[in-house]
Simulated scan of single mutants.
Amino acid sequence: MTSTVPATIDEAHIRELVTGQEAAMRARDAEWLASRYAPEAVTFTLAPPLRNADVLDADWLRTWFSGFAGPIDFEVRDLTVTAGEDVAFCHSLNRLSATPQGSPEGFELWFRATVGLRKVDGAWRITHEHTSTPFYMDGSFASAVDLTP
């Protein structure tokens, strides 16, 4: 994880909320991960469907975690935060590595993340999250999961 010194207390809280995902993913802490989102959060994640609200559901997250054998590793890199009084956004490059249940070997995937946040009752909550991988525009339209920073 790379980061700079936070410019404000709000930026520090947002960085903690975003980078806290690293430890929570490794610990498979579904409750903490779900608690970061505002109730009206909209997410566009790597997995179908096109719009996903399941990140709010700790049971769904536990089921997702159960699809992996052994450790899960997660990294947030190059996090940039822009914070106003009650609205903020940030972006980063994230890495997920894990071994799917029943698979003889694991994978490592770098992807892009953009997060929108709003201050709710004095605490920052994620209201929008978009994760994506680029795709090759060579006619194959294959996801470019081989890219690294």
Rank of each mutant, 00 (worst) to 15 (best):
P49E: 07
V5G: 02
F44K: 09
D121Y: 11
V115R: 06
R28H: 07
Y37P: 03
A88W: 02
T45C: 10
H128V: 04
D10R: 11
P48F: 01
D86N: 12
I126K: 04
P100C: 05
D59H: 09
M1H: 06
L33V: 12
G84Y: 08
G139P: 04
H130Q: 09
R95P: 03
T82D: 12
R62A: 07
P49G: 10
A7T: 14
R77D: 01
L147Q: 15
F89N: 10
P100S: 10
A12I: 00
S97A: 14
S103E: 13
E16Y: 01
T43Y: 11
V120A: 08
T19I: 09
P71H: 03
T148M: 05
E108G: 13
R28G: 02
L96G: 02
R26I: 02
G67K: 14
L117E: 06
W124E: 00
A88L: 00
A98E: 10
L93F: 15
A41K: 10
Q21L: 15
M137G: 04
G106T: 06
V42K: 10
T131G: 03
T82E: 13
W60Q: 06
D73M: 00
Q101P: 01
V115T: 15
P134G: 12
S35V: 08
F68T: 06
T148Q: 11
A23H: 04
T4H: 13
F89Q: 11
A69C: 00
F44R: 08
L50P: 15
D59Y: 02
K119R: 12
D29G: 01
F107K: 09
A23K: 09
A123Y: 07
S132W: 14
T114D: 03
A24T: 01
F141I: 06
F89P: 04
F111V: 04
C90F: 01
L61P: 01
D86A: 15
P48N: 00
A113T: 15
W124K: 03
T80D: 11
A113V: 15
L79R: 05
W110D: 09
K119F: 09
T131L: 14
A113K: 15
E22F: 03
S97F: 03
V18N: 00
M1V: 11
N52K: 12
A7F: 14
T127V: 11
V18R: 00
H128R: 07
A38N: 04
A142C: 05
A142H: 08
Y37H: 12
S92W: 11
H91E: 14
T43A: 06
W32E: 10
A23S: 04
K119D: 03
T45W: 09
V55S: 01
R15W: 01
A98R: 08
D78Q: 14
P48D: 03
V42Y: 11
P48H: 00
L147N: 11
H13D: 15
E40I: 06
G70E: 08
F141N: 15
D10W: 06
A34V: 13
